[in-house]
Structures are given as C-alpha cells and as structure tokens.
C-alpha cells in the first residue's frame, strides 16, 4: 500500500482491503435498515439465524451483540408487533414537544430549537450531491435521518471496495478521507446524543442494543480510518 496509508495497514493487499470495505459496507447497510423502518418478518427471521461475536474488541459492540442475541433468544409470534410498537415509541414518541423520543435526525440534535430540516440537513445534502448521491424518491424522510447517513457511508464503503479492486490507490485514499470527514463532522458528532436518548426511550432490548451497536460501529470505524490515514492534516 502507498505511503498515504498508515503502516498499520501496510501489510494488507488491495484485494484484502476491498474485502474489509465490503464488510464495512454491510455493517453500515445493516444498521441503516434497522433505523429506516420497523422490522419485518424476513428480517427478523434472518437476524434470528445470525451468530453474534462475543469479543470484538469494542465494548459497545459486545454489549449490543449480547443484548440483541438475548432478545432474539426469546422471540415469539407477537414479537413483530412488540418491535413495531417500540420503533414508534423510541423514534416517534407520543409527546407534543421535542423531548419525547430519540428523534433520528441530525438537525434535531444540532439546532438550537431541536427542529428538523435545519443547517445540518442542508450540509449533508450538499455532501451527498458532491458524491453524486441523492435520496431515493421512495424515501420520504429528511436527508439527515440517521438511516440515510448510514446508507451514505455504506455506499462510499462499497465504492472504496470497487476502487481497491481497480487498484486505484489515490482514489481510495481520497474516498477514505471523505468518509472520515463525514464521520467526524457529522455522523459520529451527533449520534452519541441519539443513542443516549434511545437507551432512555426504548422499551425492548432490541432497540437498546441498536444504540450500542451504532456507538460501537462508528467509534471503531473512525478509529480504523484514523489508523489507516494517519492524523488529519490541519
């Protein structure tokens, strides 16, 4: 690998690094799906058949896996409805002000009045467009919804994997910097508050585990990108 990338990863071939980025993309896409809408029967069945690593090296991820595996060990015919109710309770709430749920929008946590569609949304929209990405017509939520931001990271990770396979190191490095910047300036900057609220409002271990899994993925991914790219240039 080139000098642009840190020594920690210097033993990896581009092909191996492509696989790592495929896994990154899968992780981001998986969490995006869990935030985007309620769990459906196929997804629940798929998750029930998954295996969750116990010791990933990240305590948040380990906690999330433990809670999730425990919840999935006790599903029954009424679980889908229970999860649908908790999805609404956690992310939509039943109050009349901005303090009754874990609203999954960056603008809510970064604007003075906890409103949606504020500066954060405009900024991420500009970033998406700079990468040639726009939200799908079927997606009715704002662009700074956590599911959209996670899917954006998944898309960039997939592109990184493709560039690795094309052996375009320069483009890989550029794209990794974009991802680090988006994580540090946007996604990771506000989701700590989201996950704190999720732990407060979620009633099922399913959505409590999602908070830990999100913290774990973003924290470890930012650390990985910093290790690969070295310190940020001033």
């Amino acid at each position: 690998m080139s000098n642009a990338l840190n020594n920690d990863q210097s033993q990896l071939t581009l092909a191996e690094f492509a696989e790592i980025n495929d896994r990154r993309a899968s992780s981001y896409a998986f969490l995006s799906r869990l935030f985007a809408k309620e769990v459906d029967p196929e997804l629940l069945d798929h998750m029930h058949n998954m295996k969750f690593p116990m010791n990933t090296g990240n305590s948040d991820t380990d906690e999330g896996n433990r809670l999730l595996a425990g919840y999935l060990s006790n599903i029954w015919d009424g679980t889908l409805q229970e999860l649908a109710v908790d999805y609404v309770h956690t992310f939509i709430g039943s109050g009349i002000d901005a303090f009754s749920a874990a609203y999954p929008y960056e603008s809510v946590y970064t604007s003075p009045k906890r409103l949606m569609m504020q500066e954060a949304r405009d900024e991420v929209l500009a970033i998406y467009r700079s990468q040639g990405i726009e939200k799908a017509l079927s997606w009715q939520e704002a662009e700074d919804h956590v599911a959209a931001e996670l899917e954006f990271m998944a898309a960039l990770a997939t592109r990184t994997a493709d560039l690795c396979r094309e052996e375009n190191e320069e483009a890989v490095t550029r794209l990794l910097r974009t991802q680090r910047g988006f994580l540090a300036d946007h996604l990771y900057a506000w989701t700590g508050m989201l996950t704190a609220d999720m732990r407060k409002y979620a009633r099922t271990d399913f959505y409590k585990s999602l908070a830990s899994l999100l913290d774990g993925l973003l924290g470890s991914d930012l650390e990985t990108l910093n290790n690969i790219l070295g310190p940020e240039e001033a």
Partner: peptide, 12 residues
C-alpha cells in the same frame, strides 16, 4: 471465535 447464537422461539 466465540459467538452468541439465539435460542429457538419461546413458547407462549
């Protein structure tokens, strides 16, 4: 590598 595998469905 150790993994957690969810148990089968609960009886209700």
């Amino acid at each position: 590598i150790e993994y957690l595998k969810p148990a089968g469905k609960k009886s209700v």
